[in-house]
Design a protein around this nucleic acid. Structure first.
Lengths: 188, 188
DNA sequence: GAGAGTAGTAATCGACTGATAACATGTCAA
DNA sequence: TTGACATGTTATCAGTCGATTACTACTCTC
């Protein structure tokens, strides 16, 4: 009764998925490599062996998540004349995968403490901002507004105000969520 | 040659200031009580004695920062008919105190991992959102937009894209910052 | 000036964590 | 089949961290 062996590439992929879940909750400093190992059901030293260090894994996770976000935007954009409203739909599918955006938020927050992570976080941020403009051809101000609304939704998701298993809803939460229903964004 | 003794209240105040700086950089999990103690030039056990635990100190910091943010908005609002533009000026003074907003961002991010912190973070968020509406009488959607732009600026500050000692400016950073110059917000 | 209360420190501890090293086990080609 | 390589684990360690305890020293009052 031995474990199924996977190739290093397959196991790494699996570990990145586990790391997304773990880092989304605890952030970089608040997550142990053992947390991740347990989620993926491998031993903790193997995590280190495959990625070299906890920081290297975190950076890979950030880049991976950034890629998935960009892919979601590309998928949501029609071949011609994409509007921000199209990308908003793509963003909602990202919110549904509830760990992706919070893990990126933790990346941004950790940028303050570590230069190496900072460089990666800023690059991801710039890539996403640039992609939004490329796909839709909007003005910088409109693209920035789009991103800022996404930022707000990301924070709300991190605080479990929106998303699956939300906390008990306070009046201000209901009002804020409701303000999206009429505004075209965050269509549940 | 002994240290100047302060009252517990004075020392606590000093420690909260130190904790704002430390937590703004490292976040909750990434900051040690010894980091804070060194900043305030007291011993690490004394930090624990005064606040009971690291978590209790973090929560106090979040609430303190939330209070200062609310105060900045009140100060920036004229007695009658305050506009969001007035509060935007208040926000800029908060950005200048460069640790306040990043520490709050870390509070929001940590909300995901700890229920107790989560409750406090959500309460602070709701208080600020509610205050913005009270002061200006805007619609929920406008207040939400105001907050979301603040969120974006907070993230940019955490990543050192804006603020003192910014990193080398990439083209997208210049463009995004420039988009504020023409949009009425973030007037440096 | 003595005693009591408050401010603050040194010493220490148990638990945790990332990383290393040594070892074991499965797989595939020749 | 065998041996070489890749997958994965166990054991372990050195460093770190939050917290507790016991102690010291200052200050104020009566």
């Amino acid at each position: 009764m031995t474990r199924t062996r996977l190739t290093a590439a397959e196991r790494s992929e699996q570990l990145i998925d586990a790391a997304i879940v773990a880092f989304a909750k605890g952030g970089y400093a608040g997550t142990t490599t053992d947390d991740i190992a347990r989620l993926a059901e491998v031993s903790q030293p193997y995590v280190i062996r495959l990625f070299g260090s906890k920081k290297a894994l975190f950076i890979m996770v950030i880049e991976h998540v950034s890629g998935r976000i960009q892919q979601a935007f590309r998928d949501a954009a029609p071949a011609e004349g994409a509007q921000l409203a199209d990308l908003a739909n793509g963003f909602d599918t990202l919110l549904a995968r509830r760990h992706l955006l919070p893990v990126l938020l933790h990346g941004f927050a950790a940028a303050n403490a570590d230069d190496e992570i900072g460089r990666v976080a800023r690059a991801c941020y710039g890539d996403i901002y640039t992609l939004v403009q490329e796909l839709t051809g909007t003005t910088p101000a409109e693209a920035r507004d789009f991103i800022s609304t996404g930022m707000l939704l990301t924070v709300l998701a991190s605080m479990r105000v929106i998303g699956p298993e939300p906390v008990a809803q306070e009046p201000w939460m209901i009002q804020m969520i409701d303000s999206f229903e009429h505004g075209g964004r965050y269509k549940h």
